[in-house]
Amino acid sequence: MQIQIKTEWIKIKKSPIWLIFFLIPLIPAVMGTFNYLQNLEILTDGWYSLWSQHTIFMGYFFLPPMIGAYSAYLWRLEHFNHNWNRIFTMPQPPLHLYLAKLFIVSLMVFLTQCWVGLLFFISGKLIGIIQPFPAEMLVWLLMATLGGIVIASIQLCLSMVIRSFSIPIGIALMGGVFSLAFLARGWGLIFPYALLAMGMNGNTPQSLDYGNIFFFLISCCFFECISFIFAWQWLKRIDVQAE
């Protein structure tokens, strides 16, 4: 398993994935801060107002496709040059491949949230917010990471089954857009793509509080298990004829 994780890491180590990783969160940080400064008369809640501007669209429309891109990138090589045949002849269970990819994408999701948090902190300091930094935002970032890992596990399944690089990313966008409708109805916990935005707590119609955090975690575990079972069964049944 360790070898597979190392291999997956090599794949992304010098890849353009880092370009996406660094640049995409920069856009809401710059534009959200600009928007915050433009509307200071309405946005009076310091860090919380700035957070709402930074995360206003991120959890619905942009982080799901971004995670979709991470996942699709890791499966892309397997879909090239009959590599599936090699995978099935290696002395390693194919499921390890899925788990190694899940580990790496989860790490990327975690790092993305750290970067989002860091940009938020820097923006707040640069524009001179004087209140102390609210520690609960660290919890929101952690919850968003868990929600993001759920999306990653589903996207990895999609990119494993669909050989196209871009189609699963389009599906991630659809999932993100639909999540808004689910959150508006208060059904965020039953839709996997809504968990990230819900965990982020940024301007969502259905927010995360200490009352529903338990159900949030249960929901994350449930969707993780479903994805795992799907990947396990699919990799068990699929044969080299799929090439």
Partner: peptide
């Protein structure tokens, strides 16, 4: 050749386009 770059730029573009409407 690596389609991650164009797709990444399209995601960024979507983000910029949406934010620009509020500018």
């Amino acid at each position: 050749k690596n389609q991650l770059i164009p797709i990444g730029i399209s995601i960024m573009g979507s983000f910029i386009g949406l934010f620009s409407l509020y500018m």
